[in-house]
Design a protein around this nucleic acid. Structure first.
Ligand SMILES: [Mn+2]
Ligand SMILES: [Mn+2]
Ligand SMILES: [Mn+2]
Ligand SMILES: [Mn+2]
Lengths: 218, 218
DNA sequence: ATTGTTTTTTAGATTAATCTAAAAATAATG
DNA sequence: CATTATTTTTAGATTAATCTAAAAAACAAT
């Protein structure tokens, strides 16, 4: 079955909203994620349910069917592979690729995406540390912990972000909080839960907000 | 101004239909090229005229404005650069790339396409021999002549095709009529204008239909 | 249990892109 | 040039995706 861009965007939004937990997603959550009105979402949910892509019962929220999940994962796979292409081959920065990938993810060709994956040497993660689903839709995700959950003395490798806005990514880049760097916790400020972190020989303070959105592999 | 995929496809169709001649294009010609009904075309022409992308007067056919021409050329540029990418980097065959490029050509990012061009080493022609417009929309086209216009004894380099169907391209590939090969005319059959051509040491017969669609640089 | 708040759905419109059927304009032909 | 044939446009509908305003259901809190 061939889906419209819009339908694909809905599926992907639902996927992200209930991953990895599998709770039902509400209409309002989707409408916020997609910048549409709740009424529009209801209409679309009916259509997606009709196509057996989601499980939908009035007023109860939705979840993806296996079929819908498969479709959603394919879109995520394409999105992330294209991001790798943009960064690795075309020298885009990690804060510049999202919108372009948002369009490229809808290009329709399984061969294309499999060849792209091979061309990129089967990357495991995208430029933001997010895992790339394989051809069969399997996601090998590593457990990552936000800096805000660490204790003084803990250390680990910066491996992902929870927030993908260009502003946040640029901030991280500028202050050296880059994927792959080893980070340790020097101090947690009682007053506002700011965190003093150490990377290489440098110490720097990050806000709790930043700490919550920066993910570490232990 | 941001155009829809549909609007872009109309502009490109109009461009191809009156290139390089600059005669007005009729409604029916467009409707055939795009597989839509003439009535739909009329509606769209009004909209494109409203946006000053085409010159349109009822019953008189249309031509692109400078602005529309610029837009159309950008789409052609993107189409052809993506085709080069698919063939050169992802190992697609020249008969497999058209449909995918048909989608990729609508991805919206000037930076993307300029970087892609650099990544591909500024190719001058796409896999079918068609010239790639530069960043400023300039098309450096070489004069190509169909084999059907040549005389016995003439020779030149196979440099393009007039027909882009996969069937035709596969046929050429299989029979060794490949871009870059030098071809000469051994004989023209009086009866049906079939042409005996010579490539390397091999002679082979091609129909007039094929001869009309195979282009040679002298 | 009643009332108030939030979430979700329905009702009714709108816009883009398409279609069929029929009318109008243009082009071709005897 | 009058008549036919072809091309193009209009009229009127349809489908997808959206919206606003209002009703209905679900949830929360006295
Ligand atoms: Mn998208
Ligand atoms: Mn990403
Ligand atoms: Mn296209
Ligand atoms: Mn081409």
């Amino acid at each position: 079955m061939n889906l419209s861009f819009t339908e694909e965007n809905y599926l992907k939004a639902i996927f992200h909203l209930n991953y990895p937990v599998n709770e039902n997603v509400g209409t309002n959550a989707i409408s916020e994620a997609l910048n549409t009105r709740a009424a529009s979402v209801t209409d679309m949910l009916k259509k997606l349910a009709e196509k057996e892509l989601i499980n939908y019962e009035k007023y109860q929220g939705v979840s993806l069917t296996d079929f819908g999940q498969k479709k959603a994962i394919t879109i995520v796979r394409k999105h992330r592979l294209w991001e790798v292409f943009l960064v690795d081959k075309l020298n885009f920065k990690w804060d510049e690729v999202h919108d372009i990938a948002e369009e490229l993810e809808h290009i329709n060709s399984e061969t294309l995406i499999n060849r792209l994956e091979a061309f990129l040497d089967f990357p495991k993660r995208d430029p933001h540390g997010d895992p790339i689903p394989d051809k069969d839709g399997v996601i090998r995700s590593q457990e990552l912990i936000p800096v805000s959950k660490l204790k003084v003395g803990d250390s680990g490798v910066i491996s992902g972000v929870r927030e993908h806005s260009a502003d946040f990514l640029k901030y991280l880049e500028k202050t050296g909080l880059i994927l792959g760097e080893t980070l340790s916790i020097a101090e947690i400020v009682k007053f506002d839960s700011s965190v003093m972190v150490k990377i290489k020989k440098n110490q720097q303070m990050i806000s709790r907000e930043v700490a919550k959105n920066l993910l570490i592999a232990l």
